[in-house]
Design a protein around this nucleic acid. Structure first.
Length: 575
RNA sequence: CGGGGCGUAGCGCAGUUUGGUAGCGCGCACGGUUCGGGACCGUGAGGUCGAAGGUUCAAAUCCUUUCGCCCCGACCA
């Protein structure tokens, strides 16, 4: 493609509404344009990248035995009504009425539709397993679209669904998809971690996220520095090593001390400074309101230097969510202000403590307005249900191997689940087993945010000057640049361009009547992996080969350019 | 949904406080000079000031309503 003829509108200034690197660079590089909040169009360069990403995904899904289908994005309400999600999904669903007033919506995900597809024509265990996938636009009226392609209201998604005869077989399909995902993310050239995750409202007991590491990521994850343990902080655990209470710890007598103006843990520690009390000796007590038909108050205890993980607490309590109780509620329930809550006088309130709290010997805890208890010991001075309810982060150790954990920010690029029979039961999707008995199909579902991957790849591969595409997803592999105004330079560059194109290389040719400066800037901005600079040395028979990612440059004889490029492309896995 | 900010030429912005003929930079078109890190000179095209209503002799500017966009938070199969 000649740049002089291409529709690649690069822009020099940073668009005012773009903040994140991927958003800025994809706009500036002429890859995407916004049509509405969370709605983007792909310009020629953007579409080429998307095509490369989808092709890699398609290849790996098919290699794993999955079959491509295409379901409608425009859906009658009846399917979601069948499983109750028509109501549950709420405002996130784009709802539409047709001319007769019938209810429709745009598909945010396709469990119901694919389950219907299967139940229509699948009868026997002999037809299982099946894995179906599609690559299609999804629609979700997100409360807050973000950062260009990162969180859109319309976005390209690869969604796959597996159907098996049993839970055990479903886990095999899950494993197959997990391996396929590893291959996909590796081929895309992304730095990612597979992490344990909360399965959320979609249900299911086994799930994992493929998190692409990036500072701008929306998710917080922790990963072991030694083994392959990694988890979303929503579910992360830490080693309980050192959280055991020493057996010989008798404990000093409990003592209630007046501690005016010590509402925060730091102030408490400062108050007891000359008694060697540290944050780790204190017990942080928070009162939560558990909503439900009979709302209930629960006290959560963590060590003073820790934070309560509300998702873990809610899961332990068997509820969807918990909320911090208001100051007024706390006073009504416990007769004290929130700064002086402790587990010693709880008037029968249910208490859940992180195991670390039980290990504290002679700790400090709230003792009612203006007071704290000194020498508080679990089992002697208070009782509690023990459950892991704290947030894990830097400084914690791996629950599997004990090595230090590190925290990262991540972009959720993929999510895989074993669903069980949640949808098949609700929709009566059954098969006949060997004994002729009808049983619900056991399902799994597997998603990849394709447009999001494109943005994530930029987040992970860019510098001040622009994008540095990994070779497998670059819109073009090579850009030939004619630098100068002499006709001979253009003639030589043209020859190189033609020769590369003849070899099947995806090559851009910057034949514009521009000075060299803008050509350098554009080549770097749009991020083509290999540059062939034909300019001042062309008369002597040389060109310069520059790698965008490393900045490495080498002088190459003009007639050696094509073989050298072909060698680099092979080495880079680009062909 | 709560909080904050912004809509003026293709892009980035000034002008709004204090109402009085709509400006600057980049980009774009034409001519000339320049040619390895977003050159320079000259000429020129391009704007219902997001929209609607109101106040006024007069509204980008004041008032009311409304639409859109961004950021933080809540939310996120």
């Amino acid at each position: 493609m000649r740049l002089s003829k291409a529709f690649i509108p690069t822009i020099k200034e940073v668009p005012k509404d773009a903040v994140d690197a991927s958003h800025v660079l994809l706009l500036r590089g002429g890859y995407i344009r916004m049509v509405g909040s969370g709605i983007y169009e792909m310009l020629p360069l953007g579409q080429r990248v998307l095509r490369k990403v989808t092709e890699i995904i398609r290849e790996e899904m098919e290699r794993a035995g999955a079959q491509e289908v295409l379901m409608p994005a425009l859906l009658p309400a009846s399917y979601f009504q069948e499983t109750g999600r028509w109501d549950v999904y709420g405002d996130v669903l784009f709802r539409i009425k047709d001319r007769r007033g019938g209810d429709y919506h745009l598909g945010p995900t396709h469990e119901e539709i694919v389950t219907d597809m299967i139940r229509r024509d699948l009868r026997s265990y002999k037809q299982l397993p099946q894995i179906l996938f599609q690559i299609q636009m999804k629609y979700r009226d997100e409360p807050r679209p973000r950062a260009g392609l990162m969180r859109g209201r319309e976005f390209l998604m690869k969604d796959a669904y597996s159907f098996d005869v049993s839970e055990e077989k479903a886990h095999e399909s899950y494993g197959t998809m997990r391996e396929a995902y590893h291959r996909i993310f590796q081929r895309l050239g992304l730095d990612y971690r597979i992490v344990q995750a909360d399965s959320g409202a979609i249900g299911g007991d086994t799930s994992a996220e493929f998190q692409i590491l990036a500072q701008s990521g929306e998710d917080a994850i922790v990963a072991c520095t030694s083994c392959d343990y990694a988890a979303n902080v929503e579910v992360a655990e830490a080693s309980t090593e050192g959280a055991a209470r020493p057996e010989d710890a008798a404990g000093e007598p409990l003592e209630r001390v007046a501690t005016p103006d010590t509402k925060t843990m730091e102030e408490v520690v400062a108050f007891f400074a000359n008694e060697n009390v540290t944050l780790q000796d204190t017990i942080k007590a928070l009162v939560y309101l558990v909503p439900g038909e009979e709302p209930q108050f629960v006290m959560a205890l963590v060590r003073g230097d820790r934070d309560v993980n509300e998702i873990k607490l809610a899961r332990y309590l068997g509820t969807d969510e918990v909320h911090l109780a208001s100051d007024a509620d706390v006073r009504e329930q416990l007769g004290t202000s929130v700064g002086y809550v402790g587990p010693v006088d709880t008037k029968g309130m249910r208490i859940v403590a992180d195991p670390e709290v039980a290990a504290i010997v002679d700790g400090v805890a709230g003792g009612g307005d203006g007071h704290h208890y000194r020498n508080v010991n679990f089992g002697r001075d208070f009782d509690a249900e023990l459950a892991s309810i704290r947030t894990v982060g830097d400084g914690d150790c791996c629950p599997r191997c004990g090595a230090p954990l590190r925290s990262y920010r991540g972009i959720e690029g993929g999510h895989i689940f074993v669903l069980g029979t949640r949808y098949s039961s609700a929709m009566n999707a059954t098969f006949l087993d060997e004994s002729g008995k009808a049983r619900p199909i056991v399902m799994g579902c597997y998603g990849i945010g394709v447009t999001r991957l494109m943005a994530a790849a930029v987040e992970q591969n860019h510098d001040e000057a622009g994008i540095r595409w990994p070779l497998p997803i670059a819109p073009y592999q090579v850009i030939v640049m004619a630098l100068g105004k002499k006709a001979e330079i253009f003639a030589e560059a043209e020859k190189v361009y033609q020769a590369l194109a003849a070899e099947g290389v995806e090559v851009l040719y910057d034949d514009r009547k521009e000075r060299p400066g803008p050509k350098f800037k554009d080549a770097e901005l749009i991020g083509i992996p290999l540059q062939v600079r034909v300019g001042r040395d062309a008369a002597d028979g040389f060109a310069e080969l520059v790698e965008r990612a490393s900045g490495q440059a080498q002088k190459v004889a003009l007639d050696a350019v094509v073989p050298t490029i072909l060698g680099k492309l092979r080495a880079g896995g680009g062909r």
